[in-house]
Design a protein around this nucleic acid. Structure first.
Lengths: 262, 262
DNA sequence: CGGTTATTTGATGGGAATCAAAGGTTGTGG
DNA sequence: CCACAACCTTTGATTCCCATCAAATAACCG
């Protein structure tokens, strides 16, 4: 099954099992591919798109702009995601969608999706589920922004991104590429770029991560999770597909305690 | 059509049009009614419910508990809502659901919902849409908690609750019942009860609202919206059904400016 | 390379948290 | 119907985390 490397199938299989038939149906959906540069708009708030897009390569972000120009990022999307699937049934966009890095997107007409869904209730349910996981991530986003300290937010965010990337095969050996600026992370975490920078410095100093350019290396997964109070349940990853290259170290590294307290 | 007063139908018709047939199908779903007292758990994090519940009367809240006992409320639900509809396809609860006030709930088996959905793709799409609106509210919740000042959060929250109650006929003449303690609002807004109290005092002083016990009276809808920078788009209410008893006053009441600036 | 964009570090200030305690309200049982 | 307890609201004083302001590198890119 070499074609299982197709991003949407990888992604969906990380959260649900597919029959060969269903894989076939998905593979044959008409998709028009288009490449975007970094920081291009895909859909704007207020629009009523007639497609949804599958993110094939690159990172995208959903955000709202405030009256004074501040930006709150509501979610980040990685290959395999369908960042505006909600527009299938919510006809007016209530937020923006834009690329963060150069992206390849596959656009699928709502018409085709609706037809597929009417014929394949099981696939419809899986896509519904995809949007529900999206909502689950939104909920954790609320908690992160509402209740967590700057340091916890940063660590929690890195945990989430790492696991989501791992689920689609984009993180190996504790390493992944995060094509985000610190200002991007600030808008995601409701912090300033200054605070983001300071927290990253801390996490590095504490030996939890290394970060050079856009390459993130998780040095101490257990410590990172603990200092974030991270619980991956909300990602609703399929346990069988979670690669978990990162065993939680049993060591009481002392550092983790320090991490939690500061 | 007197039965249109049935809460689920009122609610769904506030966001989508139903055929008589569809109304029929919905009315005949097996529902088992159960009454709850104030502050009772309905579903706990970690459980895998086999029902979803329709909130017929009362208020419910969804929340996560943190390691130290803090609570972040992720959403409040009003009659007509189906607060755990997501459990239909996300089998493990990633948060708690509990009553805020005494409630009457109607439980519908997932089995029955799935059967209905497989047979009625249009109803399935409407229910999907219900969960998507839920997610849209989560997104605005992120913005509120992430970017708004204490005063804006409070005003924004009141705007949202008022419109949602109005959409199901539970707000008239600018008045509605909000059976929440200030501590509840604090957990929703990621503030302390002290701050909530201070902001409520401010909003009263500025003549935007009156609040006696659990009865909220909106005195200046335009001013309240402006001081919250509230834009109702994210609620995805059906424009035809939005009652809007509250015309936005064209007066530049001076107060609104003061409201925005402080 | 020069110019823009991104990261890093230091100094200062403010908005809301925290701490503390006094009033109100509600409900229950004597 | 009063009294007491539990809960909720209100107000004041103090603290602290992170935003803000400022400026010096460093990295990227055409």
């Amino acid at each position: 099954m070499p074609l299982d490397n197709h991003p949407i199938i990888r992604k969906i299989e990380s959260i649900a099992r597919l029959s060969d038939e269903e894989r076939e149906v998905l593979r044959h959906l008409p998709v028009s591919i288009r490449d975007y540069e970094r920081r291009q708009e895909i859909v704007r708030e207020g629009e009523s798109p007639v497609h949804s897009c599958l993110l094939i390569e690159g990172f995208a972000s959903r955000f709202k702009l405030l009256e004074d120009g501040r930006r709150q990022i509501l979610g980040l999307h990685v290959p395999g995601d369908i960042p505006d699937l909600q527009s299938l049934h919510l006809h007016r966009m209530d937020h923006h969608l834009a690329t963060v890095s150069p992206c390849r997107l596959g656009f699928i007409r709502h018409h085709d999706l609706n037809e597929m869904n009417a014929r394949n209730p099981r696939i419809a349910a899986i896509l519904w589920r995809v949007t529900l996981i999206d909502a689950a991530i939104h909920r954790e986003w609320v908690v992160r922004v509402g209740q967590r300290s700057a340091r916890q937010r940063m660590a929690h965010f890195l945990c989430e991104m790492f696991l989501r990337l791992e689920a689609v095969g984009l993180a190996v050996n504790g390493r992944c590429v995060l094509p985000l600026t610190q200002a991007d992370m600030a808008d995601a975490l409701a912090l300033t770029n200054v605070s983001v920078n300071r927290m990253l410095v801390q996490l590095k100093k504490d030996g939890l991560i290394a970060l050079e350019g856009r390459l993130l290396q998780v040095l101490n997964w257990g410590g990172l999770m603990r200092s974030a109070h991270f619980d991956p349940g909300y990602l609703h990853l399929n346990p069988e597909r979670v690669i978990s290259t990162l065993s939680v170290p049993r060591v009481h590294s002392g550092d983790a305690g320090a991490a939690a307290s500061r």
